[in-house]
Design a protein around this nucleic acid. Structure first.
Length: 255
DNA sequence: ATGGCTCGTGTAACGAGA
């Protein structure tokens, strides 16, 4: 079973890239973030023609997430039930015996911002949500744009970024707490090239200079992680005309 | 030099992203 996550930064703009990528990526499930469109405007027909059904939690202008699957989906659930959120950032479904959670973690903007406080509260809620999901689903995958670079090796210039949003101690503590629940960073199960990133700033020739961060992740529960055979970041779509600033991350599981 | 680009909105700048 092949699972992927991709922050597309507007599905309107990126639909062509998504369809082209699905045609060759051979993934069973694709989690999308930053749709920036409502459920009414979701391109259901085009994706269905490509062989994928969708579970959608859309929002106008900002946020919005979806799970695309070429296998049957069950028990679709939008948002975190015990966290009242105006922003559409979470959708979950059970596919092929795996509980899939697709999440767009808040950015936080800066440590002084109200958005940072919101991010920390949201991270607390996600912690509790994952605990409940784990209790119910031994085979759990949490895929998405975490807006957290877990370690300094996930940052192109750790000195310049030290203490800032995406790498602050409180954000990294939230990441560590997810690992503390048993969740496994699939990407680090395997040997990877140095300076492997999943996001590059549009400005300053970020991609050409490989000035990026690894902030898009696939975490798997202990039982599911034992079946993980590979995890890669596919940089190819980032090289296209008008790309998303994020690249897809793909994780391959036996059975 | 704290910007630099790309979105949506709406049809001009501006907020937001990271």
């Amino acid at each position: 079973m092949r699972l992927a996550t991709w922050n597309v930064n507007s599905l309107n703009v990126r639909l062509g890239h998504v369809l082209d990528w699905l045609a060759t990526a051979d993934v069973d499930v694709l989690c999308l973030q930053e749709l920036k469109l409502t459920n009414e405007k979701y391109p259901q027909a085009e994706l269905r023609a490509a062989g994928y059904e969708s579970a959608i939690n859309g929002q106008k202008t900002y946020n919005g997430v979806a799970i695309l699957s070429r296998l049957p989906m069950a028990d679709i659930s939008a948002d975190m039930p015990d966290y009242a959120d105006q922003q559409r950032r979470v959708i979950a479904a059970t596919i092929g015996g795996v509980r899939i959670v697709c999440a767009y973690f808040p950015n936080g903007q800066s440590l002084e911002s109200d958005k940072y406080r919101y991010k920390l509260d949201w991270l607390d809620a996600m912690q509790a949500y994952v605990a409940r999901q784990l209790a119910q689903h031994p085979r759990l995958a949490l895929l998405g744009d975490y807006n957290i670079a877990p370690e300094d090796r996930d940052v192109h210039d750790p000195a310049a970024w030290e203490g800032q949003v995406l790498v602050s101690p409180k954000e990294r503590a939230a990441w560590s707490a997810l690992l503390g629940q048993g969740m496994v960073d699939c990407y680090r199960l395997f040997e990877q090239a140095e300076k492997s990133f999943s996001w590059w700033d549009y400005r300053m020739l970020g991609f050409r200079r490989n000035a990026g961060m690894r902030i898009d992740h696939v975490l798997a529960s202990p039982q599911l992680a034992t079946d993980c055979r590979a995890c890669v970041i596919d940089r190819a779509p980032r090289k296209l005309e008008k790309p998303s600033d994020h690249a897809p991350v793909v994780a391959d599981f036996a059975a």
